[in-house]
Design a protein around this nucleic acid. Structure first.
Lengths: 231, 231, 231, 231
DNA sequence: CATGAATGAGAATTCATTCAT
DNA sequence: AATGAATGAATTCTCATTCAT
């Protein structure tokens, strides 16, 4: 069916077969649910970045989303549930975007790939400082780990980026002493360094910081290469 | 002074000279004030690390400190005031301790000095993980900057460590492209990387992380050295 | 009927004769209704004794019973409706069981009959303390009276036990001053005394209480006999 | 000081010594607290008997008592805290009143004493049916036991009535098999039997019930006397 | 200075009930 | 008949802050 349909398509009732109708209705109901859920997520995101997580109440979210307060609890456990889902969702989006961009450019050398990705992520973050603020203050490495309790945001959107990165590193010719720790250091450095730059503009602007940050990332990577002798 | 005296020493009012009395009372009152203030600070710190800042109420603090609730507002503006003062105080303590230790060892080469300091700080933090948790989640680079609104904790305890470090770097023979940014990157890396290790034990223990972290710090520093050609 | 059929058996609608279909469906639908209703009753009972009536929500009941929330309102007015029906049902069950047991033993003397019944009931309750808790806290004498608003549980299950008892007493040779009040006192005494014993084990266990309770019941009955002189 | 004083006795400030004043003020504050507390208790009682405990919210209580919602939590843990204190308080009042009346009449024979007390209590309850409703539905034998968690209502009002009764029974010449159980049976019988009479006027009025109830109590007591042979 | 009772706005959460499908 | 998403009033409880003493 055309996706431009309004939710309450009454005129069709006469035309279609009962079973098909029921399926359609079920589909409509499901779509409606999805919309409610997404309205809540979007509204929560806006408010979280506007007023901070502690400064946002569930009442704020539901009111702005145009749903009843009780509806919130149909979809999320509490404020922290929706916050965590948002963070993972947004962080994954950023990484996926970077990954796609990288794939298109066809960079192959591992160091270059990581550097490209880091740079891409930083650029994305610097263009969306609100998002940076939100993610950095709340992101934790553990969130990328599969074993976390909460299921992914919309079921299918959490292809494990971290695994892909690790995998790529492992497959590459150059060996690193401990690729996961290397990634960890790089991600933490990016998050923390960018955050304070953006929030306080201290000690410099994010744009001024970027070249130093990129060099530092390269330096960290090289410091963790296995020398041919050591391997 | 007789130890049986009540703090407010009412019985003396009749006997002593008014002026002496006032001075004595002032002294005692001042000591009393200081004690109250310190009781509040210590208690707040305990509670903040125990139950987190949002989980601690002013009532909790005053009750455990043994003062009235109203008294809190005589000394601090609100919970975030006392929190910020504590963070700066504690962070400064750590850095000062590291600085002193470094001075005693007589390391002179700049890279070695910074590395020593970083290592020392990490060791302190790994021995006091509660403090690490508290500081990292709340520390911001801006807090070390003079221009922040709140005056320092007890007036004199904030000799500007950052300035000293910068100064040392500037005076050293080796030139760095931008020493402040370098310090910034190092401090942020330490804070963020240690925090997640301690809180989630991910991706490894803090002890396992330390060598990689130290190497990364050295790598960052070298990457920011001015080569004679480049300058 | 093929067991693979869905309960609402939509596929048959086209094949069978309308009237047969309606009858069949009615039969199935009626069975279905009965099942739903019974699932709700059983589940409610379980939850009421598990978590108490105020601690049980309609959502809890319907979820555990595997029906939709709206379905509850097709069968019951509200939580208190289902509660009252349950209590009457369960209390009647107990009394009926006692009555049957008594009939089998062939006790004829009235005092013995009542004592037998009381003892039997107490034994049943002591073997099902969960039921005792549920009934005692909620039972009221008025529930046994015909004139109550709510119709009986399943239409036919409320042969009026009380009437039978009264009848038996009236027909017996010994005359009691007021048999209904006598029964009332006995029933209330049993309910209240057993309840606290079971819930708090105070002032003694139910087993320790029973002989005293039985003696008290006998004593009450004798105190209400009409002496030939008094009549 | 005359007790007719208004709470804010400003005119005295000039006349009295500071210390005396402070004490007076403290006294006033304490009196004020007591008044608030009592206002809450009285209001809660009124509402509990009017609308039932579940039907009364804390908002209702504070609003009617003329205090802020938060004030409630200064004095009571929650609704059930205030309910339990009220029940114990009221039940104790009734028993104390009965005990005093009995003492004045000088009845000495034990059976007569218990019967007098029971009759007195029933009369009190029949004159205050609202109270009866409230107490019976909520009273539990355990509440009379010292070992309950909550301290007594106003500190001093809980002379242990039960102990006194037990003591009297023990000291009396006549021996009972188990005086505490006897008391238990009597109290439970009174509570349960009176409750349903009052609430549903079934199976008869409380006034009509009383003679039967009194006789039953006597019968129970006699059934629990130790025969001289048995002792 | 110090106190701590009082406040009341506001946060989170629950739940009976309705109603469109 | 059955469903279950949506509602929003209602409730409990917390807590920063004030202010009279």
């Amino acid at each position: 069916m055309s996706k431009g349909l309004k939710i309450s398509g009454e005129c069709q009732k006469q035309i279609m077969e009962p079973i098909q109708l029921r399926q359609l209705n079920k589909g409509k109901a499901a779509a409606n649910k999805r919309m409610k859920r997404e309205a809540l997520l979007n509204t929560a995101y806006e408010l979280f970045v506007q007023k901070g997580v502690p400064g946002t109440s569930i009442h704020d979210i539901t009111e702005k989303a145009g749903v009843a307060k009780g509806t919130f609890y149909l979809y999320f456990k509490d404020k922290y549930d929706i916050r965590d889902r948002l963070i993972r969702h947004k962080a994954t989006q950023i990484l996926e975007k970077g990954y796609e961009d990288m794939s298109r450019t066809g960079v192959t050398a591992l160091e270059d790939r990581v550097v490209f990705l880091a740079d891409n992520v930083i650029r994305q973050l610097s263009e969306n400082r609100i998002l940076l603020k939100f993610i950095s203050k709340n992101l934790s490495w553990g969130m990328f780990k599969r074993d976390l309790q909460a299921p992914a945001l919309s079921g299918e959107d959490e292809i494990n980026l971290l695994d892909s990165l690790n995998e790529g590193i492992r497959r590459s010719g150059v060996k690193y002493k401990d690729p996961e720790i290397m990634l960890y250091l790089i991600i933490e450095l990016i998050g923390a360094a960018c955050y304070n730059c953006v929030v306080n503009n201290e000690p410099c602007s994010l744009d001024d910081l970027r070249p130093y940050l990129m060099n530092s990332i390269r330096a960290i990577m090289r410091s963790m290469e296995m020398t041919s002798a050591a391997s």
